[in-house]
Design a protein around this nucleic acid. Structure first.
Lengths: 202, 202, 202, 202
DNA sequence: CATGAATGAGGATTCATTCAT
DNA sequence: TATGAATGAATCCTCATTCAT
């Protein structure tokens, strides 16, 4: 327990904070937040629990750190979206970019999705909701029919679910990924068409 | 403190097992499985922790009990689905019925969705996956294009997400519910149309 | 650690709560509150730490329990004092009774005196202050000169300090005890005489 | 956050040791010894914990340093007292000087009084007892009656208690201070009178 | 049908201290 | 003079579970 030498470490320097986040995310995603103990994280890193506390004030802060880092692209996407006209092309572009953003943070999103109950009363719960609210604002037209609004929402969830639920489908991962994107794009397109009868891009 | 309603509660008899399940589900859904302790459940019922063990062998068994009870309609739906021809009408009917089944067990499904990480290594995890597999079998045509398969999957997830994500949309709950069902039906219809070029029900 | 048999216990029944308080007070008084760990208390009783938590919600509650139990006589004394006329005889009687009350709870008072910093932000801190306020009210005449008020205060503190500081004086404990009481009585008498020029009991 | 006053604080040089002691005493007196962590002290000074260890070998040494510095006047007073005749005048002078010495180190004495349990097994515990023994030697006549000895002791404790207990009395601080000194002087006078029937200063 | 009493394992967190730089 | 990084030991507390009554 907590040895000190065995060749393949010690060269690391100053990256401990990052390594903690990496290992933590891996374990959080694999086993869930509550079921992952700090002891476990520490052991994976060959440091003591106390070392974690040097870098983060609480277990929760570790998660906050991960969230802030991995979630920035989405924040930027929303920022960008707010500055664009609400055209079909924009929305389609948002879907495309959001899909990319998700890809870049798959483990975090897997974690968020599979630990909603937990996340809800963690600090990141509110932060996450805010982002979602942001996404909705740039994707959903409040004037649209309820059905079309749901369609837009569904496009987002298709992307989310697409990250995992699709595993049990047969086929090449690349292909499946593309299929998910296509379906989502399709839905947002239908939602938009319903709203403004096809004349806006003309 | 404790008790469930109206003050006079000692008259209940033999229904303790059911009451435990009710309270447990309520708390599990509200706070998550790990964050709900047996002490808490017992307090809400005004009995001792030990009493719970008279009715259930473990904490997990309480959940299993709930799951079996509330999930039966879905099992039956799948059973039924297996005996039907793979027509559009059948699939639409499945969507309709599945939507109803979800309504009848909202707290359980909310729980399942928000505690996936936990559920995964509980006994009900595998049972749940089986059911999902069953659903897929009767909803998704393995011959269909990947995109159409994803569309079908998405229909299911639309129904799931529809239970909660829709809360932040404006509008009458009834209306929203209908909208969700309509979108899901729409998707399954499109999925089917893509597969078998529109001639089968004609 | 925490064995289960060795002859001389097991016959106890239901007195565990009391035994916890006894051992706890002994250790608290001997070593201080913070330096006494629950592990230590548990070991002295040959039970597990968790057993303590069956009987008390927190470490602090153990102390609260002790305080409530041992402090009751003082509360009653104050109650009694409030109903008496503010004569010399009354005050002398209060000093006598207070001295007795202290004797009945020496370890607790030793503890309170030696752990003031700690006690201050425990729940019993405020309770203690209240009692002291009560004592002052029945012992000190707010109309009296400052000097006489200090004299009364000093009588109280003489009693307190008398419990321990007197240890290093030579002589028979009984004798010392009496001497302390005499000095305190003397002081309260002088305080009273100053106030109301000697004619009230005549 | 941190810093001690007025924003510009980097100009200090070499006085770090002193500043550590100042902050430490402040916190020790306010919160108690055990409840004041080195982290806290360091933060108040805007340095790292490790820096404290450059100046002091242990947490306890910080306290020892403070004690030695602030307690010197009392040591000197005792020294002086030992060289004086045991007359009433001497004792009254000691009371007066001791009162002053206490005033010059109020926070330390507050600390000592409120943390006796802790102090007892720190190095300064024994040192403190020695000083008290010294004080007793010059204040208390071992030939005197027990009652008069207690009276002398009480004079000392009146001074101690006078530092704080008097807070809840109404009146001007200056006045109260004087009242306390008067009572203490009074007591020592009575103690002395009892011993040697009033003829020695005549 | 249920309680009272207890356990063993483990959780997050905090602390004084060390040491290479 | 100081810091950055880490440790080992301890702390309070919580939990699911057991069992005699």
């Amino acid at each position: 327990m907590g040895g000190t030498m065995d060749g393949t470490k010690r060269q690391r320097r100053g990256d401990t904070r990052q390594r903690i986040q990496d290992v933590a995310l891996e374990l959080f995603a694999e086993q869930g937040y509550e079921k992952t103990s700090l002891r476990e994280i520490a052991e994976h890193l060959d440091v003591t629990k106390a070392a974690l506390y040097y870098h983060f004030k609480t277990k929760e802060e570790i998660l906050v750190g991960i969230f802030e880092d991995l979630t920035r692209p989405i924040e930027e996407l929303i920022e960008w979206g707010r500055g664009q006209p609400h055209t079909l092309a924009t929305k389609q572009e948002i879907v495309r970019r959001y899909s990319d953003a998700l890809d870049g943070a798959t483990p975090l999103f897997r974690f968020m999705q599979e630990n909603q109950a937990t996340v809800r009363d963690l600090r990141i719960g509110e932060r996450f909701k805010e982002r979602m609210r942001g996404l909705r604002e740039i994707m959903i037209d409040p004037e649209a029919s309820l059905v079309d609004q749901v369609r837009s929402l569904s496009a987002i969830f298709t992307l989310h679910a697409g990250m995992f639920a699709v595993h049990d489908l047969e086929g090449d991962p690349e292909e499946k990924h593309k299929a998910v994107l296509e379906v989502a794009t399709d839905m947002i397109t239908q939602a938009h068409a319903g709203t403004k009868p096809a004349q806006d891009e003309a």
